[in-house]
Computed example of a mutant assay.
Amino acid sequence: MVCLPFQWRNFLISLFTRLALAILVLFIVPSLAAAGWWMTQHHADNWRAADWSSSGVLPSKPEASDASIYILAARTGGLKGALSLHSWLVVKRPGTTSYDRYDVVGWGTPVRKNAYDADGRWYSNTPSIVHEIHGTEARGLIPKIEAAIKQYPYARPGSYVLWPGPNSNSFVAHVLRLVPEIGVVLPSNAVGRDFPTDGRLFAIDDDWRNFRATLFGYIGFAAGARSGFEINFMGLVAGFDILNPGLKVPGFGRVGI
């Protein structure tokens, strides 16, 4: 049996103690606080009782000449809504007055097109617009988005995994990584967004403005103009935003400064 010198034993004990304290403060305490807050809110009893109707967040009659791209997200259902969002993509092609919505669900064929209203509530929760692009820029990006959707590698029935992914947020994050010109990452409380759908544990975006490293979505970190600095632990994200100053708190997402 190998015995470590006294100094090394003390060093390792100190290291693990500090690591455990950091995990407690950065991830566990905020998650428990988010769960406590969530339990005080009113929720639909089940998916049948939930409201899935249009929320009115998007214009009901968009201009036919305009092209638009929207990334939307809403709290998901059940207890997991305390910690995570469900996100989806919406595009409006030029010359049309209707939207196309793309998201991934956990039953049947994962990738769905127009299964819900473009700005429909998710388990009765009203969505917010994470990012939007209009006009000439949107017109040029829509074909790239559609190509990225077709390249999603987990589109077969049975490939959805609630945690750590691939799930609905993994799908949207996949598109955002393949089309970095969109210029945004999903909110930090979109659990599953850090799952490496491309299988790469280390990656730099094509425009070199973001870097990520992950152990299959269980643990990792990201840094760059879009991410700021983030640490991912078991799907929970803590960190800070640089361009739009704020803290990234597990369960709560970005908290502005």
Rank of each mutant, 00 (worst) to 15 (best):
R9H: 14
R9A: 14
T17P: 11
V25T: 06
F27M: 05
L32D: 02
A35T: 07
W38I: 00
W38M: 01
M39D: 14
M39V: 07
A44C: 07
W47A: 14
A49Q: 15
D51W: 03
S55A: 14
G56S: 12
P59G: 09
P62T: 02
E63F: 00
S68C: 03
L72M: 08
A82K: 01
S84T: 10
P94Y: 15
P94I: 12
P94C: 14
G95C: 03
T96V: 04
P110N: 08
K113I: 04
A118M: 06
Y123H: 13
T126R: 15
S128E: 13
I133K: 09
H134N: 12
G140I: 02
I142S: 13
K144S: 13
E146Y: 03
E146C: 00
Q151K: 07
R156Q: 12
Y160N: 06
P164C: 06
P166H: 04
A173K: 00
L176M: 09
V179P: 04
E181Q: 13
I182M: 06
I182F: 01
V184C: 07
T197P: 03
A203H: 11
D205Q: 15
D205Y: 15
R209N: 06
R212K: 12
A213V: 07
T214N: 06
T214Q: 07
L215K: 02
G217F: 03
Y218W: 15
F221T: 06
A222H: 03
S227K: 06
N232E: 10
N232V: 07
G235W: 01
L236M: 08
N244H: 13
P245T: 09
K248I: 00
G253H: 01
G256Y: 12
G256L: 11
